[in-house]
Design a protein around this nucleic acid. Structure first.
Lengths: 246, 246
DNA sequence: CGCTGCGTTGAGACGATTCAAAATATGTGG
DNA sequence: CCACATATTTTGAATCGTCTCAACGCAGCG
């Protein structure tokens, strides 16, 4: 993947220290001094149009990416054509960590809307994190957080039923929107029912039915991709109180 | 697995450089010089009896662990008592990476048999990996590999049916036993049907039925926890050729 | 205005779960 | 080392949840 670099942007080198996402992104928790040193790390920004790939499974791994604007999904394609969405990423979150292990990306990263990422050359990151302690530690935390998140998804896929899964998904989205200064109760989903379904291990019809059911029960108001949460407690209860059994 | 070391404990400091697991464990790919420096890292070994916890969800995070002998499962307990097994770990694999993000362990690690781990103080690891490049890189790879593995499990849970899941599980075990110098075709599972089921998002009865079906079809021979694979190709086919649809 | 993609809803089919019982290991104390 | 108690596994039958297939509605766009 060639860095389209020059184009439109990024010639005017933008710095982490100037970025309003510091509190969500890699620099989180680092000192001002340390953050200043990060600026040499973020080589360029790259714009990705909706539906376009940031990288593909099999691509050589060279950099990780921090989402500056927009959102992405990552997915894995099975030989037989089945797709598994492994995650949805929003501003401040990192993409590409999967590539370190084999030096090849192991999944696809696709923009859900026109987006922009900061390109962090991996070699440089290792180098710099040998000197900047805070960076090293923060990077480890980011990777570890990804592992913990994945365990959460495994739990969801392994032991929850359809409605619990969707409730967990909505609560998670709400929480992440909140962290970005948006409303916890009202937001716009960037992904289709099919993508949600793939992520949750459900068919799109099942996702749609669950949305409808939640609406009937007054838990949420749905209008296409626009979601309004009317009863957070009700959603939470769904997860922790599996309706009939056990 | 031979314990070259006396019994009881690790008073006589055992070194990575002397360990026969170098090729599976953290030191993999590091130079001899680098590996020598690792010896200062592995503080002690710790024995864990079958069914005992190495650590619990909520415990303060202080170290990661390399399995020297034996095997473990990691699991997450839901509020309502449901258990999700998030992984099975064998010799040379690392435990505890989940704890870095919050400085608290986020899952339980339980020995499936009497086992022994090398304790790697996390602070020391960060310190040393600032100087030993190979260690830094290797550690990142280990974390990344964990992420990739988790994506594989998500794929399994999200888009495979019961028999495909079990086939994938058996092939994965076979491959890992092979990497450890054991037979690819014949091995002993250390976990119960219920634990396998939890890991695969299935009930133990479903797991048992799938085992029986595989046996009827001549794919494997099962005797309790002892498994003999008779037709690897058949198992692989199951995964890539979902029987009826799609 | 008529595409085309996305979302909703219904009816029937199918796979995994639940409940139940029996068979087989495993562990313990005498 | 046996005998009993407990845990694990297997198997069957009925139930239930999600999927499949299909039709229709709605929105956005050329």
């Amino acid at each position: 993947m060639k860095a389209t670099v020059p184009i439109t942007v990024a010639s005017l080198k933008v710095a982490c220290s100037q970025c309003n996402l510091v509190e969500l992104c890699l620099p989180f928790g680092m000192s001002e001094n340390e953050i200043d040193r990060l600026d040499e790390l973020v080589g360029a920004r790259r714009k990705i149009k909706r539906q376009h790939h940031l990288y593909r499974a099999g691509d050589a791994f060279e950099a990780i990416y921090a989402i500056r604007a927009g959102s992405f999904k990552t997915d894995v394609l099975l030989e037989d054509g089945r797709e598994q969405v492994t995650g949805f990423q929003m501003t401040g979150e990192m993409l590409g960590l999967d590539g370190i292990s084999t030096e090849l990306h192991s999944c696809n990263a696709i923009a859900l809307e026109d987006s922009e990422v900061c390109v962090i050359a991996y070699g440089k990151l290792e180098e710099l994190s040998r000197v900047v302690e805070g960076l090293q530690h923060q990077f480890h935390k980011v990777m570890s957080r990804e592992i913990v998140r994945d365990h959460g998804v495994m739990t969801l896929l392994g032991s929850m039923r359809a409605e619990e899964r969707l409730a967990a998904f909505l609560l998670n989205m709400s929480q992440r929107f909140t962290a970005r200064g948006f409303s916890a109760a009202e937001f716009h989903l960037r992904m289709t029912r099919e993508e949600i379904g793939s992520y949750l291990g459900l068919k799109l019809e099942t996702v749609s039915r669950a949305f409808s059911k939640f609406q009937e029960e007054g838990l949420i108001a749905v209008q296409q991709k626009h979601i309004r949460i009317l009863n957070i407690g009700g959603l939470k209860k769904l997860i922790h109180h599996p309706s009939p059994r056990a």
